[in-house]
């Protein structure tokens, strides 16, 4: 569905995308993860033909981009990072106006509006003004708008950033429904739980390169020990010196917390119980551990 080879893009002296390869199969949800400035949004812009690459090739739904970007965008629905619904139009009018940009007749869009509103959970808001909608409703409408021309593939740039848990779950439900209908989804996100939940496969980008690619479970198993015990509290430094090397397969001190990666969490916990001043959280390892291991813990501002 999407094939990217050797994609590069430079702004001034900064190489934002450096030789990126990607393959997204039909019907899958593919996650693009990476810290701020990793090149996720630039990659999406390149894929849509909104900016020209310095080198490399893109094939989107079998169509070459940027040469045939217009034709390719007919097949794609986009949910951008920042809401850009038309504030001068009602919910329904937003869908009607957007359909026209795809060359659809008013009758064709009108026929799809009830289905789109139902999908977005906005059936009773058809005539509401955009300013009256909550953040979650706006996102859902943006998603419905991206579906107005029944695209084969959807690009979502951080679709749930800034939403409360209820609203996020609604968006996820909607996306699962689209996957069940056979749509292909490419999604960027900062939220590891979101990627773990939705993505069949994902790539972690850093400094414009693909660091790793694979299914979330497989990546966790390949890169991280099965369990993590996070330890913090008074006397942590002494405990770390005395026990970390023997009890943990791998350990890492970050600020006031010790991350102990282990296959046998019970033995770590037994040892911790003898030091009441230390508190701990025991959890299975997750995608965030992979992400932080591969991209480091430094802030990217």
């Amino acid at each position: 569905m999407l094939k990217v080879r050797g994609l590069t893009k430079t702004y001034g002296d900064t190489e934002v995308v450096r030789g990126l390869d990607l393959d997204v199969r039909r019907g899958e949800c593919f996650g693009l993860l990476g810290p701020n400035g990793a090149g996720k949004t630039t990659t999406l812009r390149l894929l849509l033909g909104l900016t020209d690459p310095d080198s490399g090739s893109i094939e989107l739904a079998g169509i070459k981009v940027p040469q045939m970007a217009r034709e390719a965008r007919m097949k794609v629905g986009v949910v951008p990072q920042l809401d850009n619904l038309d504030p001068d139009f009602s919910v329904r009018e937003n869908l009607l106006a957007y359909g026209r940009y795809f060359g659809m007749s008013k009758a064709a869009v009108t026929a799809r509006v009830p289905m789109l509103l139902e999908f977005a959970g906005l059936a009773n808001k058809a005539d509401a003004q955009i300013a009256q909608l909550s953040g979650g409703m706006k996102r859902r409408l943006t998603l419905a708008r991206a579906l107005v021309h029944d695209p084969d593939i959807l690009f979502l740039d951080e679709p749930t950033t800034g939403l409360d848990p209820q609203a996020r779950h609604l968006i996820w439900q909607g996306l699962r429904r689209l996957l069940a209908e056979g749509k292909t989804i490419v999604l960027t996100t900062h939220f590891m739980d979101e990627a773990e939940r939705l993505a069949d496969r994902l790539a972690i980008l850093d400094h414009g390169r693909r660091v790793v690619e694979g299914a979330p479970r497989a990546l966790i198993e390949a890169h991280i020990e099965p369990a993590v015990v996070e330890v913090f509290g008074e006397g942590l430094a002494d405990w770390t010196r005395a026990h970390a090397a023997t009890l943990c397969l791998r350990h890492e001190s970050v600020g006031e917390t010790l991350f102990c990666y282990t296959a046998t969490p019970d033995s770590v916990i037994d040892a911790l119980k003898e030091v009441p001043a230390l508190r701990y959280v025991h959890r299975p390892s997750n995608l965030e551990d992979v992400f932080l291991k591969l991209t480091g813990r430094d802030l990217r501002d």
């Binding site: 034709e71 965008r73 007919m74 794609v76 951008p80 850009n84 504030p87 940009y101 795809f102």
Partner: peptide, 14 residues
Amino acid sequence: VQRTWDAILNAPMT
């Protein structure tokens, strides 16, 4: 301000 052009550019418009 409204980023209406950005939205339109995501459609097959130049």
